[in-house]
Amino acid sequence: MKSQYAVIGLGRFGASISKELVQLGNEVLGIDKDEEAVDEMSSELTHTVVADATDEDVLKSLGIRNFDCAVVAIGDDIQSSILAAIVLKDLGVKKVVAKALSELHGKVLDKIGVDRVIYPERDMGIRVAHQLVSPNLLDYIEISKDYTIAELSVPKRICGLSIRELDPRAKYGCSVVAINKKTGVIIAPTATDVVNEKDIMVIIGTNDQIEEFENEVIG
């Protein structure tokens, strides 16, 4: 079933999220005060509307509470971002996700009950830094304060070893949740699955566990 998303703020971040959600087969309502931004996205999204998302009556009239998720992607107006998030929570939207421009902005969004706060610039900076210092690290996503998912390229030195032989869970506390091979992706690999050079291992664990595994196994 298609999910319905409302994206408030159609700047670079909001436009990017909106288009990707549509690509993934969802219905997206784009909302922005700027008529030009709305016009630009009108052919890309399911619906677009020029509206002030801090106005409760306007959001009510759009049937916002019936949406599965609302994303507050307002650019540089922190006050509007916070007000829009408050209105969405008051109207009972099932899930509210909001972009934070700073740690303080994020704390306020947390306090008002936003379900997920995204720090796009900070998170991208962290991911780029990790990729720069670890050539075998292809991607790095922090999924909570404690846990991370990392994609690691398999080097020649461990080519032909099975998951049992690598034994990441017992030795390091992290788990291989997928192996991306040329022939396809193995989800939840078994102990007998073997890694080959240039396969990509998707690993979940704490930062420390993944770092230890990377240093000792990947090298």
Score class of each variant (00 low, 15 high):
residue 156 K to E: 15
residue 68 D to P: 07
residue 42 S to C: 12
residue 31 I to C: 05
residue 90 D to M: 13
residue 23 Q to E: 10
residue 162 S to E: 02
residue 77 D to Y: 11
residue 204 I to E: 03
residue 76 D to T: 07
residue 111 K to F: 03
residue 137 L to Q: 01
residue 125 G to V: 10
residue 195 V to M: 01
residue 168 P to A: 09
residue 164 R to H: 03
residue 72 V to P: 00
residue 16 S to E: 09
residue 144 S to M: 09
residue 118 I to N: 02
residue 37 A to K: 14
residue 83 L to S: 04
residue 30 G to S: 05
residue 39 D to P: 01
residue 203 I to C: 10
residue 120 P to F: 09
residue 182 K to H: 13
residue 198 K to R: 12
residue 150 A to H: 02
residue 211 E to I: 11
residue 97 V to G: 05
residue 144 S to V: 02
residue 211 E to L: 15
residue 85 A to N: 08
residue 144 S to K: 05
residue 176 V to F: 11
residue 140 Y to C: 06
residue 54 T to G: 05
residue 103 E to G: 09
residue 126 I to L: 15
residue 56 E to I: 11
residue 189 P to H: 05
residue 77 D to S: 04
residue 192 T to Y: 10
residue 213 F to D: 00
residue 47 H to S: 12
residue 164 R to W: 01
residue 15 A to L: 03
residue 42 S to H: 07
residue 201 M to E: 04
residue 69 C to M: 15
residue 83 L to A: 05
residue 122 R to Q: 15
residue 185 V to E: 06
residue 183 T to M: 12
residue 89 K to E: 09
residue 115 D to N: 05
residue 50 V to K: 13
residue 103 E to A: 14
residue 35 E to T: 05
residue 148 T to M: 08
residue 48 T to S: 12
residue 89 K to D: 03
residue 201 M to Q: 01
residue 32 D to K: 00
residue 188 A to W: 02
residue 144 S to N: 02
residue 200 I to K: 14
residue 9 G to P: 04
residue 30 G to A: 04
residue 104 L to D: 08
residue 45 L to H: 00
residue 122 R to E: 10
residue 197 E to D: 04
residue 119 Y to G: 00
residue 137 L to A: 06
residue 207 N to E: 15
residue 119 Y to N: 02
residue 201 M to V: 10
residue 91 L to C: 05
residue 98 A to F: 06
residue 44 E to Y: 15
residue 112 I to M: 05
residue 5 Y to L: 10
residue 144 S to I: 02
residue 147 Y to C: 11
residue 5 Y to M: 02
residue 139 D to S: 09
residue 31 I to F: 01
residue 47 H to P: 01
residue 175 S to F: 09
residue 60 K to C: 03
residue 44 E to L: 15
residue 195 V to H: 09
residue 178 A to Q: 07
residue 29 L to R: 08
residue 137 L to F: 03
residue 29 L to K: 07
residue 144 S to F: 07
residue 40 E to N: 11
